[in-house]
């Protein structure tokens, strides 16, 4: 047998990119189920459609870029993007909305920058933000919790955007949206006058708890380190907690912030995206905390109901800078004062 001439190390762990991605996909399942329970089949249809689109676009672009298709497709990163988009888009997304989002995510945000590993921005967030700006009406048409569409209705809406009797009966503003526009009421009065708020908050809390469970699973598997998610949740909790203490009538409480909107999805599945976040542990802390802060600011004062896409894209932009200033001290470069006997 011809002897191989290879560089050390000669042994390799069983760690694989595709394995990491697979765990990430699996970890979204609790959240996916919770979302479907409260909002109907929309998210599931979104998901299947987005996955099909993502894999096709990925293959197409790889072919156009004259890259081997199989090894790159099999890394699973396109599916992760598809999952994140499907979960983030409203359950009442028509087919073209998902199409545009995935197209921009895979083709523009990922491959035009050189493919996986080279993209400065989180592809799913690029797709999401683009749709939010271009199609604000469709993007804010969130499903209601009271009555959900059946599969046939959902399917019809998905393709034709028509609905006998109109969709209005089924849509509803998200709790975050309601709380941002209290129409002169205090939050307590709002809750008292609008029973839907309470129900919406409950649904949100369940869904967020489900994502939290999935995220903790990934943490236990050491798919990522705790730094970025913990920093993000802590800073968001701290900011909202402080403001709520100051003016409880105007600002939702910390727990309402942490358990509504896409908080947990972002904390464990988006902020932890390794490609587009800061690298070092200290850098991840800064990255996560900054996202939390930005989310609070945009949620409280911005024009959009939820703020993750923008907060994360902004911090993606800052990640290289954070990396530059948080380079850890290498062995032998720090004084030995702390650990002297």
């Amino acid at each position: 047998m011809a002897l191989l001439n290879l560089s050390s190390p000669h042994h390799h762990s069983l760690n694989r990119t595709s394995r990491l991605m697979m765990w990430v996909l699996l970890a979204t399942v609790p959240g996916l189920l919770a979302q479907s329970y409260w909002f109907g089949y929309g998210t599931l249809i979104n998901l299947i459609w987005a996955c099909a689109l993502a894999v096709s676009f990925e293959a197409l672009v790889l072919w156009l870029r004259k890259r081997p298709i199989k090894p790159f497709i099999s890394d699973g990163s396109a599916l992760v993007t598809a999952f994140l988009l499907a979960l983030a888009l409203p359950p009442f997304s028509p087919w073209w909305l998902t199409f545009v989002a995935v197209l921009f995510a895979i083709v523009f945000a990922k491959h035009l920058y050189g493919g996986l590993g080279n993209n400065p921005f989180n592809p799913a967030m690029v797709g999401y933000a683009l749709c939010l700006i271009a199609f604000p009406v469709s993007m804010t048409q969130w499903a209601g919790t009271e009555s959900t569409l059946n599969l046939a209705q959902q399917w019809q809406w998905f393709w034709t955007e028509t609905m006998s009797g109109g969709i209005d009966g089924y849509t509803q503003a998200t709790p975050l949206d309601l709380m941002r526009h209290p129409k002169g009421l205090t939050l307590d009065e709002l809750a008292a006058t609008n029973p839907l708020l309470g129900l919406g908050l409950t649904a949100s809390a369940w869904i967020n708890a489900a994502y939290l469970v999935g995220g903790l699973g990934l943490l236990a598997l050491r798919i990522f380190t705790w730094h970025a998610p913990v920093a993000m949740l802590a800073s968001l909790g701290l900011c909202s907690g402080l403001f709520h203490m100051g003016e409880p009538d105007l600002y939702p409480s910390a727990s309402q912030h942490l358990f509504s909107g896409a908080t947990m999805l972002a904390a464990f599945f988006i902020v932890t995206d390794p490609v587009t976040s800061a690298t070092s542990r200290k850098g991840k802390l800064i990255f996560g905390a900054s996202v939390g802060l930005l989310v609070f600011i945009i949620r409280s004062y911005g024009a959009y109901p939820d703020a993750f896409a923008f907060a994360i894209l902004l911090m993606n932009l800052a990640a290289p800078l954070i990396d530059t200033y948080t380079q850890p001290k290498a062995y032998g470069h720090q004084g030995n004062k702390d650990n002297e006997r």
Partner: peptide, 10 residues
């Protein structure tokens, strides 16, 4: 594959 900057090496 490409480096996904997962940071495990660090």
């Amino acid at each position: 594959h490409a480096c996904i900057r997962c940071g495990q090496c660090e």
